[in-house]
């Protein structure tokens, strides 16, 4: 097996193993219901994490994701409350806004040669600020179309349901995998992660690719915001705080190197599942407090970093000199 699949394999194995352990303790966890809920509850995070995967593969980072999700939710709530436009039109409008927002950050990162960390941090302030300006209250969304969308689901044997948003997340992952591995854009993303200067010399359109990567992340953050507003039926400017951190964690647990250039979109899905599994387990247990989630995820993150470190060290025993 090629060494680059090792982290992904390890992620999958850990997921299967921990799922098996959970089931051993609580046999009820082996049901399509649990799986369906896992998909639904993590749909918005998963969609945002796909965008984050592309950003991280290219060697960047996007801290604005959570704020953009909140902005999207508030925007939809305000628009649907105060105007009579159809939610679908509002969806299109907000996706256009978030995509443009991402593209703008990409353009600043590339053209002003500023670190992505700082630019997207400013973007986070800006998006959160826009959400505040729209409304500082939590606004419920009561549009009938929302109820329709929420009632759509695909019934699994065993009583589980794949809801619209859960299915949408799987679809986004499928498209993400295809884009990453079967398009020139995807290869260019990996190329940027391998080294911007070299990629440029090899003719990769660095400016265009960078802008598209952040635009994609903006688009998916917007989509994630729509999903989040469907999930919560509300828009609140203080919502989704720290989602970017969860997304980054999922990406790293999924076996993608934070330095860029190496990793898989599919791994991120498993990373999402692992995080979801921990939460589900704690819910099932009932006696554990919620902070154990954070500590466990932190430990898991640590374990994965060590694992990746070990793999890298094994593959290159010691640097070869002349």
């Amino acid at each position: 097996m090629k060494q680059k699949y090792l982290p992904l394999t390890a992620t999958i194995l850990i997921f299967l193993l921990s799922y098996a352990l959970c089931v051993a303790q609580y046999p009820n966890m082996l049901s399509t219901r649990v799986i369906g809920n896992l998909l639904t509850d993590n749909a918005f995070l998963g969609i945002a994490a796909v965008g984050m995967t592309f950003v991280i593969l290219s060697g960047g980072i996007d801290l604005s994701v959570g704020a953009v999700i909140a902005f999207t939710g508030v925007f939809l709530a305000v628009v649907l409350e105060q105007t009579s436009i159809h939610p679908l039109a509002a969806f299109a409008l907000v996706l256009a806004i978030t995509t443009l927002f991402g593209a703008l950050m990409g353009a600043i990162i590339h053209h002003l040669e500023m670190p992505a960390f700082i630019v997207t941090l400013a973007g986070m302030f800006l998006a959160r600020g826009m959400a505040f300006v729209l409304s500082i209250d939590s606004i419920p969304i009561k549009h009938p179309f929302y109820a329709t969308l929420k009632s759509l689901y695909f019934k699994l044997p065993g009583g589980g349901r794949i809801t619209l948003i859960g299915g949408l997340m799987l679809l986004v992952f499928a498209v993400g995998i295809l884009v990453a591995h079967r398009t020139r854009f995807g290869t260019n993303v990996y190329a940027l992660g391998g080294g911007t200067a070299t990629a440029k010399l090899m003719g990769v359109p660095v400016a265009g690719t960078t802008i598209r990567i952040y635009a994609l992340s903006g688009l998916l953050a917007g989509l994630s915001g729509i999903v989040f507003s469907l999930y919560t039926s509300a828009g609140y400017s203080l919502a989704a705080v720290g989602v970017e951190l969860d997304a980054i964690t999922a990406v790293v647990i999924g076996g993608t190197l934070l330095t860029g250039g190496s990793g898989f979109v599919a791994g991120t899905l498993v990373g999402i599942f692992i995080q979801g599994l921990i939460q589900t387990y704690i819910t099932f247990d009932g006696t554990l407090s919620s902070w154990w989630t954070k500590i466990l995820i932190g430990l898991l993150l640590f374990a994965f970093i060590l694992l990746q470190k070990g793999i890298i060290r094994l593959s290159r025993p010691e640097r070869q000199h002349a």
Partner: peptide, 17 residues
Amino acid sequence: IIATLVLMVAGRGIAQL
């Protein structure tokens, strides 16, 4: 950035603990 991410994620949990 990753090394300190660990404590960033886990630290608040520890504080809550």
